[in-house]
C-alpha cells in the first residue's frame, strides 16, 4: 500500500489511453482481468501474450516499466505465499534441488503468480492513466450507487489530510522516544488511533456543516458528465478483445 500519495499513482499525459473516458477504461480493465482469470493455467504462451498486450498499452500510454515495477511491491505478500504452495501442496511430488515439491502445487503457484501479476499490472496502468477524480466519475457513469461514489470521493479528498495527521502523531510519539517493538506497545498506537478517529469524525461533522452552509439538501449536484462515443468504447475494448482473441485463437 502506498504511503497515501495518491497523486503519485497518476501520471499526467496526453495519450490515447489518457484521453479515453474513464468508464471505458474501467470496463476494459475488469473485462481483461476476467479473461485472465478464466484462462486455463496450462496455456503458458497465452499468458505471455497477455503480458505483451499490457506492454503495448504501457508503451502507448508512455508509462515507463520502472514506474510499473516499483508499484508492483503491493503484490509481494502473495508472491511469498505462492512460493509456499508447492512445499505444502498435496499430490504427486517431484524433488528439485533437494526439496520435495508438489507438482500440482507448482502449477497452482504459477497460476496465482501469473494471474495476480497480470491483474496488478492492469490495475497499475489504469490508475496511472486515469485521474482519481475521473475514475470516480467513470464509476458513476457505470451506475455504481451514488452514495458509494460520494463516500469514495470524500475518502480520497480527505485521505491525505488524515494521513498527515497520523504522520504528525507518529513524529510526536517518536520524538519522545517511542518505538513499537512488540505487542505490549500496541496500546500506545491504539490511543493514537482513537485520537485519529475523533479528529476524522469531527472533521466529517464540520464538512457536513460547510456543505449545509452552501445549500446542501442531501443530493450532490452533478457538475461534470463524461460521455463516451462508440469509437472510444471500441478503442477501450481493444485490450479485452485482443486478450480473448489470444485465448481462443492460439
Amino acid at each position: 500500500m502506498g504511503a497515501g500519495h495518491h497523486h503519485q499513482l497518476f501520471r499526467a499525459g496526453d495519450t490515447v489511453v489518457h484521453r479515453l473516458p474513464p468508464q471505458c477504461k474501467l470496463v476494459a480493465v475488469v473485462a481483461f482481468a476476467v479473461v485472465v482469470v478464466a484462462t486455463p493455467r496450462e496455456r503458458f504462451w497465452v499468458f505471455g501474450g497477455y503480458l505483451l498486450l499490457l506492454a503495448a498499452v504501457a508503451a502507448v500510454a508512455r508509462v515507463p516499466a520502472r514506474f510499473v515495477l516499483r508499484r508492483m511491491v503491493v503484490e509481494l505478500p502473495f508472491v511469498l505465499f505462492a512460493f509456499a504452495i508447492p512445499v505444502i501442496g498435496l499430490g504427486e511430488r517431484v524433488t528439485f534441488w533437494g526439496i520435495s515439491l508438489s507438482v500440482d502445487g507448482l502449477w497452482a503457484s504459477w497460476n496465482i503468480l501469473a494471474k495476480a501479476t497480470l491483474g496488478v499490472i492492469a490495475s497499475i496502468l489504469l490508475a496511472a492513466t486515469t485521474e482519481p477524480r475521473a475514475m470516480l466519475l467513470g464509476a458513476q457513469r457505470l451506475r455504481m450507487p451514488q452514495l458509494l461514489v460520494q463516500i469514495a470521493t470524500f475518502m480520497l479528498r480527505y485521505l491525505d489530510v488524515v494521513l498527515d495527521a497520523m504522520r504528525r502523531m507518529k513524529v510526536a510519539r517518536e520524538s519522545r522516544g517511542f518505538q513499537a517493538r512488540n505487542l505490549r506497545q500496541a496500546p500506545v498506537l491504539a490511543k493514537s488511533a482513537g485520537a485519529l478517529f475523533i479528529r476524522s469524525y469531527e472533521r466529517g461533522e464540520r464538512v457536513h456543516l460547510a456543505m449545509l452552509s452552501r445549500g446542501y439538501t442531501g443530493t450532490m449536484p452533478i457538475y461534470r458528465e463524461i460521455s463516451a462515443d462508440v469509437g472510444q468504447w471500441l478503442t477501450a475494448a481493444a485490450l479485452p478483445v485482443a486478450a480473448a482473441a489470444v485465448l481462443f485463437l492460439s
Binding site: 482519481p132 477524480r133 470516480l136 470521493t153 470524500f154 480520497l156 479528498r157 480527505y158 489530510v161 472533521r203 464540520r206 464538512v207 456543516l209 460547510a210 456543505m211 452552501r214 445549500g215 446542501y216 449536484p221 457538475y223 461534470r224
Partner: peptide
C-alpha cells in the same frame, strides 16, 4: 480543509 470538500477547485466553487 473543512470548506473545500470537493475533489477539484472548480467543483468546489460550483457546489453552492
Amino acid at each position: 480543509d473543512d470548506q473545500l470538500f470537493m475533489p477539484t477547485v472548480r467543483e468546489d466553487v460550483a457546489f453552492g
